[in-house]
């Protein structure tokens, strides 16, 4: 956890804002990111000694882009409702700096098996934050956890209201900010300028 891509490097927060209104979308997104990240790391690690240095970023991008498109197509075919919810943000995994970052920083120097572990680790680290943010947003924004209503009807009748800010993108910003704050305060990390 010391090198979590979101809470330490604050990478890839674009999709973290968009798809974390509910836990189920965050879980599917996590699976997609883990899959794309591990496979792209492995593929690039296999090719690492053959990729010409001049065009390495382009090669990495095309591998990642192809994988993302395949993930998107598979989701459309087998989980249509979910792909409607994720919409354009699944495609935006391409622009997620974590994927390219790990390919460039790790897979280019390490063996496929290590790159696979690195991809899975980073993907899960990213996903754990997504799911944590989604947990709070769904709980306060909809009163449910993973689709199951946890805030009883009586509480609503007593005047409780769901928090609309949590469903809006700024809600993810605040939750994410608080998580980063708590994590950094706990680990004692801070930006050194």
């Amino acid at each position: 956890m010391g090198e979590n891509p979101i809470s330490i490097h604050v990478l890839g927060i674009c999709s973290a804002l968009a798809i974390t209104t509910k836990i189920d979308t965050a879980v599917v997104m996590t699976i997609a990111v883990v899959a794309v990240l591990s496979i792209s790391n492995v593929v690039i690690s296999f090719l690492r000694n053959n990729i010409p240095n001049k065009v390495r970023i382009i090669i990495q991008m095309s591998v990642i882009a192809s994988l993302v498109i395949i993930a998107d197509q598979v989701l459309k075919a087998y989980m249509y409702d979910m792909s409607k919810l994720l919409g354009v943000f699944l495609g935006l995994i391409i622009t997620n700096c974590i994927v390219l970052g790990r390919a460039e920083a790790y897979a280019m120097q390490n063996s496929p098996s290590k790159a696979l572990l690195d991809g899975m680790g980073n993907g899960l680290g990213y996903g754990s934050i997504l799911i944590a943010v989604a947990f709070f947003r769904e709980l306060f924004g909809f009163g449910s956890i993973y689709g199951a209503q946890v805030i009883a009807n009586q509480i609503y009748l007593g005047g409780y209201e769901n928090n609309g800010l949590m469903i809006l993108s700024p809600g993810a910003f605040f939750i994410l900010g608080l998580i980063v704050w708590a994590h950094r305060a706990y680990t004692g990390t801070s930006d050194k300028h």
Partner: peptide, 16 residues
């Protein structure tokens, strides 16, 4: 090298 990678990826994509 670039051509081969592009063709392979392109084929993979269209098949899927």
């Amino acid at each position: 090298f670039t051509t081969i990678v592009t063709v392979v990826l392109g084929l993979g994509l269209s098949v899927t």
